[in-house]
């Protein structure tokens, strides 16, 4: 079996200290392989968001090891860590996080701007990503003028534009009606299937979770169910 793209060992994460100490994650082990689609499910406060943040290297575990493509990420610091996040991950959030008054294209090219890619290439690749999501005609529109579904497609274009190997989607359909939500899901799973992009979805929508290859249930900071292990 090939090296997992993401691997965590006995990860714990606690907040506060003394009396107020709160353990969000109480020791998790997880291997995620390239090209998988994984749903992390659990109730509010179960620790699923914390887990996603740790997997996305936005947060560091209190104890435990996070390995990205077999390399310990504890050694990643500063510029190297930023570069890794920029190149490896794409993010899709429930609240979109688009800059309202900037154009759709400007929003999409933001990760490339951060990476320092030249303007002409940014434009070319940004338009290509929008084309892929049937939004090429909206490139010049202000992000604020789009519908919810269009906004989420812009967010997906932004997540795609740097050709990441992993896309993190935090409640990607939470703010969408079921029809648009289903369309957005189709796009995400299409990317997973056609481009081999690893998809990590955090949700409490069981229907969405059911569409993933693998379902992981988190409860009170512990991994209580992993469909891959059940199958195995």
């Amino acid at each position: 079996m090939s090296t997992p793209i993401l691997s965590i060992r006995d990860v714990r994460r606690s907040y506060g200290r003394g009396q107020n100490r709160f353990e969000a994650l109480k020791g998790l082990d997880l291997d995620i392989r390239q090209g998988e689609s994984i749903a992390i499910v659990g109730k509010s406060g179960s620790g699923k968001s914390t887990l996603m943040h740790i997997l996305a290297l936005l947060d560091t575990p209190s104890t435990g090891v996070v390995e990205l493509q077999g390399a310990d990420t504890a050694n990643l610091r500063g510029a190297a860590l930023n570069r890794t996040r920029n190149k490896t991950f794409g993010f899709v959030f429930q609240q979109f996080f688009l800059t309202a008054n900037a154009s759709v294209l400007e929003n999409v090219v933001l990760p490339m701007k951060i990476a320092g890619i030249p303007r002409s290439e940014r434009r070319r690749r940004g338009l290509a990503a929008l084309e892929q999501l049937d939004l090429a005609d909206k490139a010049g529109n202000k992000a604020v003028d789009l519908s919810g579904g269009q906004k989420q497609r812009v967010v997906i274009a932004r997540a795609l534009v740097n050709e990441p190997s992993i896309i993190f989607a935090d409640e990607p359909t939470g703010n969408l009606d079921s029809t648009t939500g289903a369309a957005v899901e189709d796009i995400l799973f299409g990317l997973n299937r056609d481009k081999g992009i690893t998809l990590i979805v955090v949700t409490h929508d069981e229907d969405l979770a059911a569409r993933c290859d693998r379902r992981i249930l988190i409860r009170d900071g512990l991994l209580v169910e992993d469909s891959a292990k059940v199958a195995a």
Binding site: A56, L58, G78, A79, L81, N82, R83, T84, R85, N86, K87, F89, F91, F93, Q95, F97, T99, L110, P111, I114, A115
Partner: peptide, 16 residues
């Protein structure tokens, strides 16, 4: 705040 968070999540350094 959220925009700053997003930019940082996307790999923008604190210095920048």
């Amino acid at each position: 705040t959220r925009e700053i968070g997003l930019m940082k999540a996307m790999g923008m350094g604190s210095g920048k």
